[in-house]
Design a protein around this nucleic acid. Sequence first.
DNA 1: GATGAAAATGTAAACGATTTCATTTCACAG
DNA 2: CTGTGAAATGAAATCGTTTACATTTTCATC
Lengths: 329, 329
Amino acid sequence: MANIQQVAKRAGVSVATVSRVLNGHDKVTAKTKLKVEEAIQYLNYEPSMLGRNLRNSESRIVLILIPTISNPFYFEIIKGIENMALSQNYSILLCETDSKPEKEEIYFDLVRKKMADGIISMDPAVNVETLKELAEHYAIIQCSEYGGGIGIPYVTIDSEEASYRAVKHLIQIGHKKIALMNSDEKFLYARERRMGYERALREHDIPVNGDYIFYTHELGFEQGQLAMKKILRLEDRPTAVFAVSDLLAIGALKEITAAGLHVPNDVAVVGFDKIDFSNMTNPALTTVAQPMYKMGTVAARMLIEKIQGKIVDSVVLGHELVIRESTTG
Amino acid sequence: MANIQQVAKRAGVSVATVSRVLNGHDKVTAKTKLKVEEAIQYLNYEPSMLGRNLRNSESRIVLILIPTISNPFYFEIIKGIENMALSQNYSILLCETDSKPEKEEIYFDLVRKKMADGIISMDPAVNVETLKELAEHYAIIQCSEYGGGIGIPYVTIDSEEASYRAVKHLIQIGHKKIALMNSDEKFLYARERRMGYERALREHDIPVNGDYIFYTHELGFEQGQLAMKKILRLEDRPTAVFAVSDLLAIGALKEITAAGLHVPNDVAVVGFDKIDFSNMTNPALTTVAQPMYKMGTVAARMLIEKIQGKIVDSVVLGHELVIRESTTG
DNA sequence: GATGAAAATGTAAACGATTTCATTTCACAG
DNA sequence: CTGTGAAATGAAATCGTTTACATTTTCATC
């Protein structure tokens, strides 16, 4: 494999000139440019990013931190990030932490060692202390999930409001006994979503019943099944369930059907995220749509600006309630 | 941020010595080692991969080429690859081609420019010519999908046999009118799966009916719905459908239910891949399980060996039929 | 044809590590 | 105390770029 020296030699110019035609921001005579291009062609030369990266002290790689790749919630966000990154000549390293500190640490090390220029964190279980420390030296953006008040820019939606609207929809179609399937309240978004839930109830003079609130330690299908089992065993059974993730809701769906009950006639279900699969279930799932693709592009743009040393502000994006069969038959 | 020079200076040794304690394969006195480690600690030094990578002419990054991140089929494979890669100090760049040559080209360029040390291709739509050309200079492995006979090592399952067993299962539980929902036969695996389908039929003296074979140009949910619509319109309606992907099968499921028919009483359905969601549907899907995690680890191991210059052989892994509600009630 | 400013090109020093080869240090035998 | 070989360390080249600065070329002008 040829390097820039050999190209220079063959073209009869200096390496500086070759570099100039390569990057194009400096002026080069049409004639020399041609000579260089011929040499490049002839030698099948491809500039090495290794040399360039060292010289420029950058890697042109950004990290995406997600708890697990199995949650389709992240798909669209990732696509958004990827496309924006690609358009700016960045590549993305997708990092699954499994919410384990030791895996997280591996990836943090990647930026410490200059293998990555920045991080978009979507892991709610991320170690906030380390993140804060890292943010002093490196570019970091939080996306979708965020620890509040730690001074790291984020892009997210208004969880409280989204939750409020979802529950309000259930109330409007006649439900009064509404269960909340929430995740661990150590996460900010979980606290916000419970607040929205309670606000909607209070606004309609429905008392908040602690027995109707369930916590799961993960947002997966199985946790949804498990929680739904408990809900179905309540003596005063709820007629509706609001789950804070589609996977939880799909687990609930499966469990309700397995119990011989009908959705939505016996129990209505609302999910959160509008993952692809929410449309594939029987019945299709009513859910809150986050503008995921947009979220991804915005996060990526913010990160790149941060890498370039600019100051960036946090962003709150809109959301939308998508009403489908699981609440309206 | 400190560099190796400053560490050397503070420790009162040469950079060579620092490098030696860093990498640990050369001998260093316990006393100097301590001095160096103190200096590292004091300066908060982290070795830069940029310098190291240039010197070593490697990036320690491998590319994974997938058509789209939305297909859960790839999850477990990716996890397998990632874990194996991580254990060997490689990171993975997940690359979505959308089956578009221009996106593919972006990623191919990454290896030409030394930004990546090798490629694991899972994209059936990959440009085989370019891939072959690339394989002359760079480490490449095909995983799951593969173009046969192009001299690039692959890891896969025996598609023909898997397909044969799936169809045989349908025959054994009494079906004779079995539709095949296949993808485009420009893909080798599609041809193989049709062959398995036909072998099973022939073996039980069931004539192969061309009207029962459907082709989709993608393997998604919508394509499954569309194809199922056509199948349901056949005058001599099949009593079973074998789809070559779970997403197709889930589309079929939804469509059958929407038509007021029952699975499996009216139409039985078999999928392929055993993605997580195949278990979440109503009814749960009978499907062919590929050893995806294993496939990923094997592919990663093969790739790393290839990078190290070893000669690697292709691998065919086993598979398993998972019988669930969509065929047995 | 000399002059000078502007444009094009070249020289050489970074970037931050690893590693070969040379040199120094060390322990020990004579 | 010296000589010896092995072990530890150091000096400097190297990987492949980019770029500040120095130098040369170009060309319009007088």
